[in-house]
């Protein structure tokens, strides 16, 4: 799945966020959640959106998922504009959205059930997906009988069971403890590497280390209204090193360097919220362009 980041063949972007703004009306007041976001995600790459809480990352993800429509600009997926729920994307939301009254297996098979698959095929594929996330033996459990980490795994299995070409993740491991988080990041990387078809991932997180661990490109969003203030390319973090494990990856000097740069861009953005607006945008735009050209 790393190939297309370093490959020279021009890949058409799978997701294009074209000068997108989103304004909410709440109690008669306008709130600009996202201001002029402009980027694209090539097929098979992993993009992370980082930024402080409430900076519109989730809004952006919801627009890519088709749950929300932009006020200005447009989101295009595989060349066509997203105007309703984007069915090519599997969305793993921040909140636990497992149905509490369904057992684990029935939860995972739910997307296939809606597609109207044959019952036998459906349950087989759900069981496979559960095995893929390391949860065989828990098919008959109810979600509330599982730990937080296991529930996340079930959710991941449910998102992957119908093989979407894109995976949208909103703070996927946000509420978990540090060790579990690393384990799940490790599993996710292994999963991504092992898939036959390349999976495109858009990941929202406020954990900079998580972003650097998982992504090929990191967009830093900051300010009110939120803008993309920095773009960090991570192609120098060799994927082969990643196979050795997340912990090894985190020890690399390049890793710390990237995290440090993300930090600085966030600090700069919050330190001088207003004056840097113009700067931030013009600095981000060329980097994006080069990111897209590769």
């Amino acid at each position: 799945m790393t190939e297309n980041v370093s490959s020279t063949a021009p890949q058409p972007p799978l997701i294009e966020v074209d000068h997108v703004s989103k304004t909410y009306v709440r109690d008669g007041q306008l709130t600009v959640a996202v201001d002029d976001a402009n980027f694209s995600v090539p097929a098979g790459s992993v993009l992370a959106l980082v930024g402080p809480s409430g900076c519109g990352k989730t809004t952006l993800l919801n627009m890519i998922a088709g749950l929300l429509q932009p006020t200005k600009g447009s989101v295009r997926y595989a060349g066509s504009e997203v105007t309703s729920v984007n069915c090519g994307a599997g969305y793993m939301t921040q909140h636990d959205t497992l149905l509490p009254w369904r057992r684990v297996l029935a939860n995972v098979s739910l997307p296939l059930e809606i597609q109207g698959l044959d019952r036998r095929v459906m349950l087989d594929r759900a069981a496979d997906a559960l095995r893929e996330v390391g949860l065989q033996g828990f098919e008959r459990h109810f979600p509330n009988q599982l730990s937080g980490g296991m529930r996340k795994r079930v959710q991941l299995a449910r998102t992957l069971v119908y093989s979407p070409e894109t995976l949208l993740m909103d703070e996927p491991f946000g509420s978990l403890d540090a060790i579990l988080k690393i384990n799940l990041q490790q599993d996710l990387l292994r999963l991504l590497a092992k898939r036959e078809r390349d999976l495109t991932v858009v990941l929202v997180t406020h954990d900079l280390e998580e972003a650097v661990t998982l992504a090929d490109t990191v967009l830093v969003m900051a300010g009110r209204p939120a803008r993309v203030v920095h773009v960090e390319q991570l192609e120098d973090l060799d994927r082969r090193t990643r196979d050795e494990g997340v912990v090894a990856l985190r020890r690399l000097p390049e890793f710390s360097l990237h995290v440090e740069r993300l930090w600085q861009s966030l600090e700069a953005a919050s330190g001088s919220a207003q004056p840097r607006d113009g700067d931030g945008r013009s600095a981000a735009a060329p980097a994006l362009e080069s990111g897209r050209a590769r």
């Binding site: 749950l67 729920v85 994307a89 599997g90 939301t93 959205t97 149905l99 739910l110 809606i114 597609q115």
Partner: peptide
């Protein structure tokens, strides 16, 4: 959130009612 998660699976209104709202 549960309703949205089913919408994302491309469920129609009836399926959402049956699989989420009723239970």
């Amino acid at each position: 959130g549960l309703v949205d998660s089913l919408r994302l699976m491309n469920a129609n209104k009836r399926e959402i009612a049956r699989k989420v709202v009723l239970p």
